[in-house]
């Protein structure tokens, strides 16, 4: 399966996790990890599974590297019908009210353009005891399993 891990990062934590997910999946799949700041919404491809990894910054906002992407999504309003994605959020529950605001915004942007979200939006808590990858690897495997059916390819 073609998988592209797209990350929105501010401190680099989401970037590191995205690269780890890509490394975890690359034995069985064609995987790349790309910063959302280097990705154009026009590049979305229906034959590729997108795994979005996104943090939250400031007051529940998108992280810096996802902001140009969000602006382009608004401006270009691409039709993403038939595009499949899963989304993994990274947040910090110290900031209760806006915990995981960034990934929520990103998921809404995708769905508003017709893309299909696979699975639940997972939220890792930086102030919690669990390592992000311990949540993210099983999540990625699960989404890839679901995408196998959705994309009509062998997972």
């Amino acid at each position: 399966m073609n998988i592209q891990v797209l990350y929105g990062t501010e401190t680099g934590n989401a970037e590191m996790l995205a690269e780890d997910i890509a490394a975890e999946l690359e034995a069985d799949h064609e995987v790349t990890a790309t910063n959302l700041s280097d990705f154009d919404p026009g590049e979305f491809d229906r034959g590729t599974l997108y795994l979005l990894v996104c943090s939250t910054y400031g007051d529940g906002e998108l992280p810096a590297s996802a902001q140009p992407f969000a602006e382009k999504m608004e401006a270009e309003a691409p039709d993403l019908t038939g595009v499949h994605f899963g989304i993994f959020g990274m947040g910090d529950s110290e900031y209760e009210e806006t915990f995981n605001g960034g990934p929520a915004t990103l998921a809404e942007l995708m769905i508003a353009r017709g893309a299909t979200q696979l699975g639940e939006r997972i939220a890792h808590d930086a102030s919690g005891a669990e390592m992000a990858e311990d949540l993210a690897f099983p999540w990625a495997e699960e989404i890839v399993g679901m995408a196998g059916d959705a994309l009509g390819q062998a997972a």
Binding site: T11, G12, N13, M16, D92, S93, E94, D125, A126, S127
Partner: peptide
């Protein structure tokens, strides 16, 4: 001391 989430950036640095 009560912003351990912010301190999680050290995981990148350890790497």
């Amino acid at each position: 001391a009560d912003h351990q989430g912010t301190k999680a950036v050290t995981r990148q640095f350890a790497r």
